[in-house]
Design a protein around this nucleic acid. Sequence first.
DNA 1: GTGAAAGCGCTAACAA
DNA 2: TTGTTAGCGCTTTCAC
Lengths: 356, 356
Amino acid sequence: MGVGLTRKSGAGGRSTVRDVAARAGVSASTVSRVLGGEYPVSAATRTRVLRAVRELDYVADARARAVAGAGTPTLAFVLEDITGPSFAHMAYGVEREAARLGHLSLVCSTDGDVRRELEFIEMMRAQRAAAVILVGGAADTPEYRERTRRVADSLAAAGSRLVLCGRPPLGPGAPVTVIEYDNEGGAYALVAHVLAQGHRRVLFLGGKPDHTTAMGRQRGYLAAHRARGVEPDPALLLHGDFTRDSGHRLMRQALARGLEFSAVIAATDMVAAGALTALHEAGLAVPGDVSLAGYDDIPFARDLRPALTTVHVPYEELGRLAVRTALGHGGESADEHLLLGTHVVVRDSVAAYGGH
Amino acid sequence: MGVGLTRKSGAGGRSTVRDVAARAGVSASTVSRVLGGEYPVSAATRTRVLRAVRELDYVADARARAVAGAGTPTLAFVLEDITGPSFAHMAYGVEREAARLGHLSLVCSTDGDVRRELEFIEMMRAQRAAAVILVGGAADTPEYRERTRRVADSLAAAGSRLVLCGRPPLGPGAPVTVIEYDNEGGAYALVAHVLAQGHRRVLFLGGKPDHTTAMGRQRGYLAAHRARGVEPDPALLLHGDFTRDSGHRLMRQALARGLEFSAVIAATDMVAAGALTALHEAGLAVPGDVSLAGYDDIPFARDLRPALTTVHVPYEELGRLAVRTALGHGGESADEHLLLGTHVVVRDSVAAYGGH
DNA sequence: GTGAAAGCGCTAACAA
DNA sequence: TTGTTAGCGCTTTCAC
């Protein structure tokens, strides 16, 4: 039935340059040239080639192109969990900017698992990714710094680049680009605002004890207290993670434990949301009985009741900046360190201290 | 200074199999074999090779491996905007499951731009992606169906596969895998619940007029009315998008226009959040003056005040299922169509109709 | 303007 | 067990 002949004819798909060349009656190089665009080819041949391409529904294998030297550059980003609103916004910024700059984006969610992060980075080195962007904080231990520094070196040696987006530098000399926002400064301003309202016992619903972001915010909390001359009570520092459920759980525990406080600072807006519900469940009014503030200024924050006072962080811009900086200069770039500012957004969840 | 000799020695990076082979005193194939793992190599050589690999900090170029036949399989997913909570959860499911199955994930945010979606799919065909997953609804026009069907054919011919995740089928015979959740059914149940509370004029804050998800939900809204024998007032159908801001804006317009209603159904929880705030700003109590319900059951929904009655959708599972089904059977798979169920989650934002 | 040939970095079939 | 030889599918000199 002559089926054999049909193989490459119809919808095509698995066809190669050579198939196209044959069908157009030219050489493979010519096909490559008309597809490449940058090379003089007679109008007639071009037309024939293009027709063959269309008939075969041909697309050049990107991997082969890459090996041969052409090929779409790729960039990778790693985050703990794309599901968190602030992560999602950074991811959005990264992907959009990468696409704008003609790059493909590879993602990996690590769920906070360091091994996974490392494995993925190694894969990206194999992929010859132009840059690997680590999005969001991490547990800051000595081993972490050493490991990260090692991968930074590997990447740099391979002509790629490690970017820390929303994560602090590794120390001098590490070949990394870091784009951060000011966790400590934002928290400082926020807590100062709360303290200025007369609150003296403010609960801190923090993140994991080693987490860079969580710690930065906690440092700001502490510093604001000291600047005001009030000694923070260590019992008021609670640790969980950055989810809504963590905020809910922590707040319930604090209440159950009979902790005394007139205001609470949540490490993220998500945590604040959970805390707000727990407060509400306990019959406490916000901000009547207790004031509450978050961090991140996610879109949702203004829909909580009361609307949440929080710290605005330009997440999307952070992501965009990260790829722009990483891709801007080819490899030999100076080790950049950008610190983006944040500002507190006053809404309705913090009120003046009403006595106790 | 003998610097030339140092080039490939130190941190290495751009080294090739041949460099490693030379340093270990073996052939390239041997290096490939020890790295591949599946082939008998003497312990001694293996050690030497491994040492050379370490010293050179070598990783095989993944693109070259792919061309040669080995190589990490890749999968791609496309969505409108990773920033939307439900999208983010699907994306999370997709990425996690892909990684679990040993695949790399490429992402693209289209911002709803069809051209971008098409361009990206074409790139994925060039990348020889194992599957391309389209996440979330789309504007359902005849052109859309035709275009999508065409790319589905292209992909299929190339041994890849198109997956529609949260988007309806293209009609019979299209080589696609579709994993949907029941928009119409969920909305039907939700609206029936609201109607059962005695409400008769319920406002619908919908999405874009052609959008498959939005339309499915609207159909459910309409069907529930008819089933109850109440004729829905077309003036009560408003159109926007799925964001919080859209909900806020639409709700304000409805109020300004003096529309009469005692309940509102928002097409998504985000829309509901914005609507809630608009209602609040207008001095209306929920559910005292007007009842409100959302759709998606995002984590945040229970932190709104009142806690939002909504429809639960297993987004993460949807994403996981999408990749499992797509990857499960190699190409020649039957054209699958899975419809996941949803259920309404009754919380506090819908109350019985209190008269008018 | 076009083709032949060399090569990108890797793996696999074939010998030895 | 290991090396040699062919590719994989593409691009890019280098000739004509």
